[in-house]
Amino acid sequence: MITAEQIEKFIAQAHRVGDAGLTVCSSGNLSWRIGEEALVSGTGSWVPSLTKEKIAVCRVADGEVLNGVKPSMESGFHLGILRERPDVDVVLHFQSPYATAVACMKEIPRNFNVTAEVPCHVGSVIPVIPYFRPGSPELAEQVKAALKDHNSCLLRKHGQVVCGKDFDQAFERAMFFEMACRIIVLSGGRYEVLSQEEIDDLETYILGKKP
Rank of each mutant, 00 (worst) to 15 (best):
L154M: 07
A145D: 11
L139Y: 00
F77N: 05
V90I: 11
F177W: 06
A146S: 11
V60Y: 01
D200C: 14
W32I: 11
E107R: 13
V102I: 11
A140R: 02
N29Q: 04
S195I: 08
Y191D: 01
G42S: 06
F112L: 11
L30K: 04
L186E: 13
Q142N: 12
F94E: 07
E74N: 08
L154E: 01
V47Q: 03
N111L: 11
R190G: 07
L207E: 04
S41Y: 07
L39I: 04
E197Y: 04
M1R: 11
V122M: 00
S49C: 13
S96T: 10
I34H: 07
V162C: 01
K54V: 10
G28M: 03
L194N: 00
G164T: 08
G123L: 09
I81G: 00
P134Y: 00
G188D: 05
Q142K: 15
I199C: 05
M105V: 09
V65H: 04
L50N: 04
Y205T: 15
K148Q: 10
D62K: 05
G28F: 01
S124G: 11
D149L: 13
V162Y: 02
G28P: 01
K54H: 13
L50C: 09
S26H: 10
Q6R: 13
V47D: 02
M73Y: 03
I199V: 13
W46Y: 10
S96A: 14
K210S: 14
A56W: 06
N113R: 12
L92W: 01
S27E: 12
L82G: 01
R16N: 10
E84A: 15
S187D: 01
R85H: 03
N29H: 02
E192T: 15
R85K: 05
Q142Y: 10
K70W: 03
I126W: 00
T204L: 14
E107T: 15
T115A: 12
